[in-house]
Design a protein around this nucleic acid. Structure first.
Lengths: 127, 127
DNA sequence: TGCTTATATGCCTTGACAAGCATATGCCGT
DNA sequence: ACGGCATATGCTTGTCAAGGCATATAAGCA
């Protein structure tokens, strides 16, 4: 399995992580709320625990699982340079729109269909 | 393939995305810098383009690929609640450490922005 | 026109993993 | 000690995607 990215590629696992955001949960609670078979929950939790996404404590016959931050922080760290990238781009776009007094008040991006206004892509030899 | 998470689960694709952070690149450049066969590069780029991570323009026989922000922003959005989660936890830890007058003076004395105190990662009960 | 460079695509094999099912382990109350 | 509840694990099967290879498309050049 290896990387944290492969771990969170699984939708059920992301669902479990999101569920644990509110508070720690037992396997049975996760099973009910996510409507997924118990063995599947246990297996996903196993993967998540081995990768450090969650930890568990024993409460009688139950096991309570809770989030651990480190692996997702790793994802966040990988994402950081891209955040800089796109904020830089949004700034540039903003300046550009300012410069050409664009009348239409464009709400900032919401739906995925939104694209940058048609500028000629600078096919610069700036390489 | 579907989700953006599955797309970035592939290490080569993450490498390509990181490479494109600096500037747009042709397929051949990516091939050389990542030392990976051309057909592999092309296939990964196909996946990335279909998912909206990159776009390409034609420059004679070359294709120049560049980043598009939206899909990674989607990842970032999913991550947001977890960021809140772990910063809350760091705050709690910090308060806790403050309360038990921990001797180690944290040398970063910027009191405005709280930072995680540098402690050894607590390897409590890993088996 | 042919030759070369740049990139894309189709086929095939292989490996990884999720899902399902059966079963094992372990704790509870009586 | 027993039966039942809660959770974990082993095995098998189907699916799907990555990698390798050959080949296709297409633009530039002589």
């Amino acid at each position: 399995m290896e990387s944290v990215f492969e771990i969170i590629a699984e939708p059920s696992r992301r669902a479990i992580l999101s569920l644990l955001l509110s508070s720690q949960q037992s396997v049975g609670e996760i099973e009910r709320r996510l409507r997924m078979p118990q063995t599947a929950v246990s297996k996903h939790l196993r993967v998540l625990r081995d990768a450090g996404f969650v930890e568990s404590t024993v409460d009688a016959q139950r096991r309570l699982y809770r989030l651990k931050p480190e692996p997702l922080q790793e994802v966040d760290a990988w994402l950081a340079p891209f955040r800089r990238f796109w904020s830089a781009h949004l700034d540039a776009l903003e300046r550009h729109l300012d410069r050409m007094e664009l009348s239409t008040q464009t709400k900032t991006t919401t739906s995925k269909k939104r694209r940058a206004p048609n500028r000629a892509p600078d096919k610069g030899k700036t390489k």
